Amino acid sequence: MKGALLINLGSPKSPEPKDVKPYLDEFLMDKYVIDVPYLLRALLVRGIILRKRPEESAHAYKKIWWEEGSPLIVLSERMHKKVKAKTEIPVALAMRYGEMTIEKGLQELHEQGVTEVLLFPLYPQYAMASTLTILVLAEEIRKKKFPQMKFTDVPAFYNKPDYIQNLADLMQKSLEGYDYDQLVFSYHGIPERHIRKTDVTKSHCKIDGSCCSTPSAAHAFCYRHQCYETTRLVAEKLQIPKDKYCLTFQSRLAGDKWLDPYTDIEIDKMPSRGIKKIAVVTPAFVTDCLETLEEIAMRAKEDFEANGGEEFLAIPCLNDDDAWVQTATNWIEEWAFAEKKAI
């Protein structure tokens, strides 16, 4: 029997420091997030970052927390509920970090008799710190707890026509009647070394301005290329002139060279260049979360206006948009019924 497991990032149990700290510990101690030797990672995370970050992050979470709970969890649950209502295939929901574990999600499917699972990371672009860590952990759990299960995974869908159409339609609706000076495609940042580590050719990804536009097998796992490709396809779909949009990366940590240009720096400079009205979309996420609701819709907006900006529009993520739900359901059913269709 076949079933699917939707997997998102996760969230603290509450926006209080006592719950934010263990969540951050689990997240930052992931070797695919901070990819340095364990002892160095432990020193950095537990000896330095977790001394101040839980209080700071808790403050940020409190600004976006809903009465029902974490926006990311609530929105993921809404999407999950809609997908379940559209298919007879068993579908469960899990998070990479926090209490809604992948093991619990697999157990739920196991109890329904599922032996073949479609792992569905809810990330359009492939990255070590998102897609890879999910797939590795799921496989570790399978070997220990569910050895009879068979896994298939949904590849990065950054360029799939139906996803691009969903994103473009949502953006067009959000932008209706809004005459922006610049549209910012802001993606979550990652260290440049992650790009090189996921380069299957071991030589293509030089991050030199041309490698992402030069055809290569590396692109199947290159986060940077996939961000640029999503942007290009959506801009073409919406017929946005090249001088009216830009691509940036947000949420970096100090100490390493991260993908640039940086969202905060670019947005802060825009008013001085005569760009007074902007819209920001965050296509690295399909679900609104701390990085979209607080970092962009609140902090970036405040900084933009403080520097002379006049209007700032934060475009929501796909969340539980009906067209996106239908797309996700279609992908699950295409996989589940592939053999029947072939016959």
Rank of each mutant, 00 (worst) to 15 (best):
K21T: 08
P12L: 05
L9N: 09
P37V: 00
Q326A: 00
S216T: 12
R46M: 01
A217L: 15
C289S: 01
L132G: 06
D321L: 04
H110V: 02
E339Q: 12
V117I: 12
L75H: 04
P241H: 09
V36K: 11
I343L: 15
F151L: 08
N8M: 12
K242T: 13
K242N: 15
D256L: 13
G10W: 08
S251N: 12
E305R: 14
L233P: 05
A220F: 15
Q250D: 06
N330R: 15
I49H: 12
L93F: 02
E339Y: 00
T198V: 05
S57N: 14
D320H: 01
E103V: 04
T101S: 05
S174Q: 01
F185C: 07
Y123V: 03
S272P: 05
T133F: 13
I89G: 07
R53M: 00
D30Y: 07
T133E: 12
L39G: 06
K244A: 00
T292W: 10
R252V: 02
D321M: 08
K257W: 08
L132A: 13
D35N: 03
T230K: 06
P161R: 01
R273M: 15
P121K: 10
E310M: 07
V117C: 02
C211S: 05
S57V: 15
V91I: 10
G47K: 00
K242D: 15
I275L: 13
H219I: 05
T287F: 13
G255W: 01
T248M: 03
S70W: 09
E56R: 15
C222Y: 00
I267L: 01
K206D: 12
P54K: 14
G69K: 04
K86L: 11
I89L: 10
E55V: 08
I34L: 09
R193S: 00
E16S: 07
T87D: 03
A168I: 07
K62D: 11
G98F: 09
K144F: 02
A60Q: 14
M1T: 11
L293F: 02
K82F: 10
L290N: 03
P71N: 04
K340F: 08
P147I: 08
M270I: 00
D199G: 02
K301N: 15
P261F: 03
G209P: 00
N166L: 03
K52I: 14
V74K: 05
H219Y: 00
K84Y: 08
L93A: 05
T231C: 01
L253E: 14
C222A: 04
R96G: 12
E99T: 11
T292I: 09
L183Y: 04
W66G: 07
W66E: 08
N166I: 02
W324M: 02
I49P: 06
E55L: 10
E176G: 07
R78Q: 05
G209F: 09
K13M: 00
N159M: 06
F27H: 10
I332C: 02
P283S: 08
E236L: 06
F120G: 03
C227G: 03
L233H: 04
T263A: 03
F304E: 03
N330F: 13
W65F: 09
W335L: 11
V36F: 10
L290C: 00
M29W: 04
E99P: 09
H225Y: 12
K277N: 12
E139W: 07
T115F: 13
H188D: 07
H225F: 04
F249K: 13
E116S: 04
